[in-house]
Amino acid sequence: MHDIPQLLISTVLLGGIYALIAVGLTLIFGIMRVVNFAHGEFLMLGMYLAFWAFTLIAMDPYLVLLPAIPLFFLAGLATYALVMRGVIHASHNVQIFTTVGLSLALQNVALVLWTGDFRFIRPWYYSTVVRLGDTAFNVSQIAAFAVAMAFTAALFAFMRWSYTGRVMRATAQDREAASLMGIDADRVYAFTWAIGIVCVGIAGVLLAPLYPVYPTAGLQFVLLAYVVVVLGGLGDMVGALLGSLIVAAVEVVGSYVFGTAWKEVLYFLLFIAILLIRPAGLFGQRGAESLGV
């Protein structure tokens, strides 16, 4: 039983990073009603950004965060203008295939440019371990958690108290009423999309020192983020946070009990079970899923 503190802290650390991925996804869904199937590809791009900055100019991944924020914001605005703007009022299927197409294109741009090789970042603190009582943690993991949480908290505060955040929520509630009040929905969507992309891009930078970097690296994380987001209720930011902790707990405890090989089965089964039992998420309103929103 002396493993419990370690498991607990591992869960929280992992959950924090998942939260940052999931919050971007759920933000985009909550405001724009679009499930971004290309979310994982922006995570992958974030990982590559960290990798190249480190390899080419020996820039520390945590320093890369600073240019990463404006870069991903611009990338978000660009993909919105080129790809998403035209389908924002289209049917679900059109939106799904548009983001799937974007995912396919980005993944393979990475493959063509940087090949399919696994790449690793090894900063000097790579194997530095922090000990606390019976528990031990990699310093990168703790740093990633701290930055992810700070960023998530900032986003929460922004959505809750800033004027722009309120405008975004108003647009999500009632697109027409918002436009009657002079809110430019298109700008809100562009901004929302870009913020969502920044979240996941930064998560990519934070994950780069911890996981191998390759063109489809985003997939495993984004599948996980879908689980998190459905668990918490699509579009629900607090739910996403709780969902992240649950999924992280399942992963940590699952690998402890069954071994790492089978942990993914656990959360996918959890995912399907949740979809069947409470498709609107553990904390969401019932009925949203069959209304197709």
Binding site: F29, H92, I96, L234, V265, F268, I272
Partner: peptide, 21 residues
């Protein structure tokens, strides 16, 4: 039980379970 993106996500999860197995 599910429509739109929820259904798509469920189908992806389903095939991933088989992949892992």
């Amino acid at each position: 039980r599910l429509r739109g993106p929820y259904f798509v996500l469920a189908t992806i999860a389903f095939s991933q379970v088989l992949l892992i197995v």
